[in-house]
Design a protein around this nucleic acid. Structure first.
Lengths: 236, 236
DNA sequence: GTCTATAGTGGGATAGAC
DNA sequence: GTCTATCCCACTATAGAC
């Protein structure tokens, strides 16, 4: 048994706290992602990453619990890049369909250079118990940030829609985006054109559906769908 | 360079051809699946499988290219079990919704005992390049057999629907079934009740949508959806 | 707290003898 | 078809330097 102090608030204002460690961490991550792109995920060994970064293998494991954990860094970075790429359309467009379409294409744009890489490591993200799963607790910051983009799509748009649907829509659109991403991972057409066509074809349909949600005759159907979502969400 | 003869048609009628090899193969597969269930996929080593089956590791690799290839046997078996479990509803029911609902629940019933096992090996099936991917060439026999079940759902039903939709529907329903399976893998509610609720909630919606497909006013929308499917299918 | 070096474990996969 | 021996790699352990 050892005596453990809770970390006292570090008052020293001038010292660059943890600058060194953060730098090493970054170096390892950058090196890993570069090698993943150049050689693929499976073909890149931890030895190679450490050697290329000029650190010891143990040091890489000091910062990243496992090879898979290096991918979390990739997520975070891509998430930020998606937000940035979506910014122009989110500030410039007001129509719902145009906003959604722009955001989805921006997402694909950002992912594009990593397509072959993504396909090889996708398997690790797919495992339900993996911290890399988009539904995992560990991924929730990135997930929330991603859902926020779609909330922005809805709230900044001129579309008038059913208030309850409006509440659910961001998460539904994010789920759709996950579906598009899944499709994209499996899409081996040149430049993933099929994914682009999927987006261009699906957005008008969604737009039409969302617009129809306000019709009184369709209210029962909409209620039925929302009830389904609600019942499926319940965790028992 | 070695001289290779194409396998001549073995005329010997009485000899039990390949009986020995087939037996060993079966032994290894059964042992592997048993251990997977008992200990989980990742925790079961090839060494352990070989030892338990009483063969050398190299011998296991003689019959199965990799550990993942052992799972293909699991698929084939489950596929057959799904067909069998669906049989009663396919012969007894004539309403579309009831047939679809019955087939989906039968599928979940069949998978149920393997839920935790499925979650652990799901990752390997998720990789697009994996032969275990439901979209891979190697899986096409099992996939075709599965689609055939849904073709049966449609063709044996009393539902009247748009002829073009009728042609596409089996594959769409199979895709939906893949979605349900995906949901099921991630579903950790007790006894996977959320998946059951998803089925019970989604089937009436699909039924309603399919019925609506015959309305003349909705023809343009239906055409739009079918065109989207067509354009997404195109491989360029 | 950050980092190195080294030696090891264990598991997927393979080579080549028989 | 079957085996034994071996390779490679993710990952761990450890002991210690700064």
């Amino acid at each position: 048994m050892t005596f453990v102090t809770t970390a006292a608030a570090e008052p020293s204002p001038s010292a660059p706290r943890r600058a060194r460690g953060e730098q090493t961490r970054q170096l390892i991550l950058e090196t890993a992602l570069r090698l993943f792109r150049e050689r693929g995920y499976a073909e890149t060994t931890m030895r190679a990453i450490a050697k290329e970064a000029g650190v010891a293998v143990g040091n890489a494991y000091y910062y990243f619990d496992s090879k898979e954990h290096l991918i979390q860094g990739f997520y975070d970075r891509n998430q930020a890049a998606h937000r940035a790429a979506a910014e122009p359309v989110l500030t410039g467009e007001t129509e719902f369909a145009a906003r959604l379409r722009g955001v989805l294409h921006a997402g694909v744009d950002v992912n594009e250079p990593y397509h072959s890489f993504a396909a090889t490591f996708f398997k690790t993200a797919a495992e339900p118990s993996s911290p890399l799963s988009p539904f995992s607790r560990e991924s929730s910051p990135a997930r929330d940030a991603s859902i926020a983009i779609f909330r922005d799509v809805v709230e900044g748009s001129s579309a008038k829609l059913d208030p309850e649907l409006r509440k659910e829509l961001p998460e539904l659109l994010w789920l759709g985006w996950m579906g598009v991403t899944l499709f994209w991972v499996y899409d081996n057409s040149p430049e993933q054109r099929r994914t682009r066509r999927l987006i261009d074809g699906a957005v008008p349909l969604i737009d039409r559906l969302v617009a129809l949600s306000r019709l009184r005759v369709l209210r029962p159907a909409l209620r039925q769908i929302l009830a389904l979502i609600e019942s499926v969400r319940r965790d028992d």
